[in-house]
């Protein structure tokens, strides 16, 4: 365990020795998958699940993600889902509000937060979604550690 962790670190930092070259290449491929393909897949799954079914189903893909990530990546299992769903809710919410000239969000910010700043209201949803999916990812991660 300890050894593997050190090796992994080395690979990621690009300072691995010759003996680890094979692992390093693997790690680079994993980088694209980990940081581009997987988030997009997660985003799409989340969007699909909550568009066609219920909003709370969005935690599912991130639970699974948490289960599938490396046991050592506890922090990532929280932050990656957080960022993904923050972006999804944030971007879609912003788009909806933007094409509306923020008429509704101005009123909702006043209603919910007694504030004149629509972006404060717009931030609520993404933060909430981020927290929930982050927790889901982390829960998955914890479960994997238990196994």
């Amino acid at each position: 365990m300890i050894l593997g962790y050190t090796q992994g670190k080395r690979v990621n930092n690009g300072i691995g020795k010759g003996g680890n070259r094979r692992k390093k290449q693997k790690g680079q491929r994993a980088f694209w998958i980990e940081w581009i393909i997987l988030p997009i897949l997660l985003l799409l799954t989340q969007a699909g699940l909550q568009y066609f079914f219920f909003w709370w189903l969005m935690v599912l893909p991130y639970l699974i993600y948490g289960l599938l990530t490396d046991k050592r990546e506890g922090t990532r299992s929280f932050w990656l889902p957080f960022v993904c769903s923050f972006l999804l809710w944030g971007a879609y919410g912003f788009y909806l509000s933007y094409q509306n000239d923020h008429i509704l969000t101005n009123k909702l910010a006043m209603l919910f937060l007694k504030s004149e700043h629509p972006y404060l209201f717009l931030a609520l949803g993404p933060i909430l979604a981020g927290l929930l999916t982050g927790m889901a990812g982390y829960t998955g991660h914890l479960f994997k550690k238990l196994l």
Partner: peptide
Amino acid sequence: PLGTLLDPFHGLLQQAEDTH
């Protein structure tokens, strides 16, 4: 239900009608 309301796919923001 706050989650339902804040969900941009079904919640309050769906009533942000396109102005243009």
